[in-house]
């Protein structure tokens, strides 16, 4: 009949209108700042630097190998290598980044830095409320801003973090066994000084852990 479709449509919208006052199920809107949806584990947006232990400067896993800086498609990572060395996550002496900056206004959240990192030092964060009143320095994050604990990593990506931890533990055990074996084979040579030499012969026959696997 003439006009039937219009009346049907009006009835449908009226049902929606009244229904939205009656049943809360219809209103799917989440009132954002007050209410939040539970975060999806696979969610990621900007990278952060993982550190182990309590001291973010000591525990930083990054060894400033520059792979992420070179791979970064929009070139938003700026690294400066240190002159001295400190033990890394698996106990080897390595360089550490004196400066590690990420310009998040340039970052495109592609996760390539995470994929290429052989040390599991850079991971994707889930924090998305990043607005700043200063669009230059406010969005250029330094090492301190980027450093987040391994516990934080466990909280946002539990499965992934557990896998990374297991791998690191295995590598630590391997190195410990090797050091023990070398110590037994050459009892005359004290092991700690050999390790302290860092890039000495001992370190050379222990390849960089994950790099060789990848």
């Amino acid at each position: 009949m003439f006009g039937e479709g219009i009346l049907k449509g009006l009835a449908e919208t009226a049902r929606n209108f009244l229904g939205s006052y009656v049943s809360k199920k219809r209103l799917t809107t989440v009132q954002y700042p007050e209410q939040r949806l539970p975060q999806i584990e696979a969610y990621r947006n900007f990278p952060f630097l993982v550190y182990d232990g309590d001291d973010w400067q000591q525990g930083l896993r990054c060894v400033s190998c520059f792979i992420c800086e070179k791979e970064c498609p929009p070139k938003c990572i700026i690294i400066e290598k240190s002159t001295d060395k400190k033990p890394d996550a698996v106990g080897k002496l390595q360089f550490y980044p004196k400066v590690f900056n990420i310009d998040v206004s340039v970052c495109m959240s592609c996760q390539i830095c995470v994929e290429v990192c052989p040390f599991d030092a850079i991971k994707m964060d889930t924090d998305f409320e990043l607005s700043s009143t200063d669009r230059f320095s406010g969005l250029l994050w330094d090492k301190k801003h980027l450093a987040k604990s391994n516990e934080h990593y466990h909280k946002i990506h539990p499965t992934e973090a557990a896998a990374v931890d297991a791998q690191l533990a295995a590598e630590r055990a391997k190195i410990a066994a090797k050091t023990k074996a070398t110590a037994e084979a050459k009892p005359a040579t004290p092991t700690p000084p050999a390790n302290a030499n860092g890039a000495g012969p001992n370190a050379a026959n222990q390849p960089v852990p994950t790099a060789t696997e990848k």
Partner: peptide, 10 residues
Amino acid sequence: KGLGRIQNRY
């Protein structure tokens, strides 16, 4: 508000 309610939002 009315249009929102018709589309099941606030």
